[in-house]
Amino acid sequence: MAHILVVEDDSAINHMICRNLKLVGHSYLQVFDGKEAVKIATEQEFDLILLDVMLPGMNGFEVIAKIPFAPIIFISAKDALEHRLNGLQSGADDYIVKPFEMLELLARIDVVLRRTNKNAATFSLDDAVVNMTDKTVKVSGKFIDISPQEFELLEVLIRNQNIALSRDKLLELAWGYDYAGETRTVDKHIQKLRSKLGWENRIKTVFKLGYRLEVKK
């Protein structure tokens, strides 16, 4: 989907972020210090840079000043307001504080990508082709009927592919925070998506957790 540069000196976190990026279909490049980040970012183009603030040699603010324009999300252990403001004022698109949930990071990545139009326009799996811009779905070359709410849910599943999402999380992401619906609503919509797109074996029910769109071969 998008090509992302991950700048984080802590290798455990760097690997973990990359594992998750890979899971939802992004490609990535790992860098562990500021100087290397500047070098790579000037040589290559990225759809997004995830940038740790506390880096050895050169900190995140120094890095951001030296690289050509690219969407940037700061990752930092400092959550004081002034640090956040500093981060956002230096030109970052977002600022996320450690420890964070992976789903949150993915959601924020998604927001930035959508804003910069770097999100993939289509997603195809098996016979189904989902057009994210037009919000249409073709199965075996034919448009199918899909309600806006079903599409919303479909989009959430695609963005978080290979990740199990609880019914509550799905409600929150696809229906919105203030939706007071029941989790059974989710089940009904999932059933419809499965049958409409022919994804009975793709949208898996995960025991005690929820649903997962499995894209891995």
Partner: peptide
């Protein structure tokens, strides 16, 4: 993050 990954992926 790793625990979350184990649970959901």
């Amino acid at each position: 993050g790793n625990a979350e990954y184990m649970q959901k992926a």
